[in-house]
């Protein structure tokens, strides 16, 4: 098995980041011995740091018990939808360095408080089996694949239900609006339909024509809606990624979403035109032209 390199993640609050200062020349440091650290892109940018710079890190907001590190590189933090509104001012340390930095010398056991670690598997499909294995071998630990729903997703379940409710109301409202619009359009054409019936066009023939038109309009409308959503998706994501300086994807039009839209929009559009035209066709042709 490939040796998994575990980086501990220190999520530094803004106050902690303030304690971080670039090493000044006045303090002689054994540069060769400074352990390496990775700094998030956002922290690099906000403090104008560069690779090779020496920095002091401290777990204490006042800057006490600081240690010197050398920046070996920058990384893009994994976007976290729970924390996207906070600037990702973070650094990654090797676990022993982190323990040395955050531990309490007077209480060695207190330093050993890593609450969670992420393990990358060569084959992600093994995650379930691995988690089960860990759970049986280390009773008391909670091991679960990152793909499994975690309790933090509860918020998103609520949001999703909220979205579903908004979507349903929107669909219902627009379907009613569409039907009303079709009724108006069709009503305007009542003279035409009446005349066609008088000439000798059958109901079925006119209904077919209206359905064909309705299908075309619904198809064009659906394509327009999907195209608009795809364009807005890019604009929307770019704006909020800029706004919150994150790689998080806020909006994603998946094939499933597209399929769902088509399955809703096409039948609704066709049904609206069918219902609207039937309100005319069921009437006597003379009643249609007489108004």
């Amino acid at each position: 098995m490939r040796r998994t390199r575990i980086w501990a993640l220190v999520a530094m609050a803004l106050s902690a980041a303030v304690a971080l200062t670039a090493a000044s020349a006045a303090q002689p440091i054994e540069a060769g011995e400074a352990p390496g650290v990775l700094v998030s892109r956002q922290l690099m940018e906000s403090r104008a740091l560069g690779i090779g710079d020496l920095v002091r890190l401290s777990a204490d907001p006042t800057g006490g018990r600081s240690r010197t590190f050398r920046i070996l590189g920058a990384y893009e933090p994994t976007p976290d939808p729970m924390r996207f509104a906070q600037p990702a001012l973070e650094a990654r340390l090797h676990l022993p360095d982190l323990l040395a930095l955050s531990g309490n010398p007077s209480d060695p056991s207190a330093s050993d408080t890593v609450s969670s670690i992420n393990v990358a598997l060569v084959n992600p499909a093994d995650a379930d089996a691995f988690a089960r294995d860990v759970s049986t071998r280390l009773p008391g630990t909670v091991a679960r694949p990152t793909s499994a729903p975690d309790d933090r997703a509860g918020t998103f379940l609520v949001i999703e239900r909220f979205h579903l409710a908004i979507a349903s109301v929107t669909m219902l409202g627009s379907a009613v609006f569409l039907l009303a619009l079709m009724m108006m359009l069709v009503d305007e054409r009542s003279d035409v339909v009446g005349t066609l019936r008088l000439i000798g066009f059958t109901r079925r023939r006119i209904l077919m024509q209206v359905l064909a038109e309705g299908t075309c309009i619904a198809a064009v409308g659906t394509a327009f809606g999907i195209g608009f959503a795809l364009i807005m998706q890019g604009a929307f994501n770019r704006f909020f990624q800029w706004r919150y300086d994150t790689a998080l994807v806020f909006l994603r039009i998946t094939p499933g979403v597209v399929a769902q839209s088509i399955l809703l929009a096409l039948p609704l559009g066709i049904a609206a035109s069918a219902i609207a035209s039937w309100t005319l066709l069921r009437r006597h042709p003379l009643a249609l032209v007489r108004r």
Partner: peptide
């Protein structure tokens, strides 16, 4: 109704006071 429509279309010409042309 459809058969009567066919009859109107093929066998009978109808002219109305208000023309009823398709505009």
């Amino acid at each position: 109704d459809a058969e009567r429509s066919r009859l109107r279309l093929r066998e009978i010409g109808f002219v109305f006071q208000r023309f009823f042309l398709l505009p």
